[in-house]
């Protein structure tokens, strides 16, 4: 079997994600899903700043860089104007659950017909690995050097708790730590885009993703950490799957 790079993904030299970063996998899976659905000519990507923005060098779609935490809001504006386009927001967990939580949730409340893909690596990556709302209890980050203390910083946020009872089209969490999980994650992404094509409304996929640089781990160690620790806190699977 020969795997080909999706035609709308360009690999450049000189830029790119850190070694072992999960963003590269996410970017690739989204590219494959859009190619299989043959919607690339009408795809519009709305990308957050920081690590997510590095995908600008890879994806060959019409794209917008939104303000930090606002890709979901900006994607809503795009989709309302271009209803035939396939519009997705691509952002991190800090954007989705911290600074942009209002935009994440209210777009879901209105069941806006867009796809949102959130890369959850448990830290603010580009700024040096500070605590995010998703940081695990006890996890050491550059702003929790003694580990996240729930007494001071609360517990990690779970998107299924926030959105699980909302009237949206699709909600799933995948993990980018092993071949079976990656294949499953791609199916979630593809399904999310299909919900949008069917006009069913808000489709949301969270991807558990390694950040070896800021976790202070080797790439393989980071993948094992997801399998051993992260998935215990953040179970993968589909939480909402509305049929047409």
């Amino acid at each position: 079997m020969i795997y080909e790079v999706p035609s709308r993904i360009k690999y450049t030299s000189g830029y790119g994600f850190c070694p072992g970063c999960g963003h590269g996998i996410a970017v690739r899976l989204i590219g494959e899903a859009l190619q299989e659905l043959a919607v690339e000519e009408k795809t519009i990507a709305v990308v957050d700043v920081a690590c997510c923005y590095l995908a600008f060098d890879n994806w060959q779609y019409d794209s917008i860089m939104a303000a930090h935490g606002r890709p979901v809001a900006t994607a809503v504006g795009v989709k309302r104007v271009r209803k035939d386009a396939t519009v997705f927001a691509y952002l991190g967990d800090g954007a989705a659950y911290s600074i942009g939580i209002a935009e994440t949730l209210h777009s879901a409340v209105r069941n806006e017909n867009i796809t949102v893909i959130t890369v959850n690596n448990g830290v603010f990556g580009m700024t040096g690995g500070q605590m995010a709302p998703t940081t695990l209890d006890g996890q050491v980050t550059s702003s929790t050097p003694g580990g996240r203390d729930p007494a001071r910083a609360g517990h990690p946020i779970h998107v299924e708790d926030l959105m699980g009872k909302l009237d949206i089209a699709y909600l799933a969490r995948g993990a980018l730590n092993s071949v079976p999980n990656i294949r499953r994650a791609k199916q979630y992404i593809k399904k999310a885009f299909m919900k949008q094509q069917q006009g069913l409304g808000y489709s949301y996929v969270e991807l558990l993703s390694p950040c070896p640089t800021n976790w202070g781990m080797e790439p393989l160690e980071a993948l094992e950490h997801i399998g051993g620790e992260v998935l215990k806190v953040y179970p993968a699977g589909e939480f909402i799957d509305r049929e047409g």
């Binding site: 900006t74 935009e103 209210h106």
Partner: peptide, 19 residues
């Protein structure tokens, strides 16, 4: 919208899309 912050960022998307 849920706030003026959301409003201006929604506007950005709409304007960038041709509205």
């Amino acid at each position: 919208s849920e706030s003026e912050l959301a409003a201006v960022n929604i506007l950005l998307g709409a304007a960038a899309a041709g509205a």
